[in-house]
Amino acid sequence: MRIPCPHCGERDVSEFRYGGDATKTRPKHGEGDLKAWHDYYFLFDNPKGPHTEYWQHVLGCRHWFKLSRNTATNEIGEAS
């Protein structure tokens, strides 16, 4: 799999670190109750199909970015 880093361009997946579902809303710092943080941190939609997720170019520019990818096919979409 090749991942398009918005800064460095397309690179092999082995240079990246996966950071999970990027569509979830993190409660604001210091806000949100236990349930809100639990749902944010522990529960995942985990869809079979289009997925927007975080990746870090950890062996490159260390940029964190959002990537759309289809989990049913590994087809890569936009990175931002």
């Binding site: 999970g20 749902d39 522990f42 529960l43 995942f44 939609d45 985990n46 869809p47 079979k48 989990t71």
Partner: peptide, 15 residues
């Protein structure tokens, strides 16, 4: 996740 979602359940699981 896929099957549980049909029943409206959200799980602490990733595939």
């Amino acid at each position: 996740s896929h099957v549980a979602k049909m029943a409206g359940l959200s799980l602490p699981i990733e595939s």
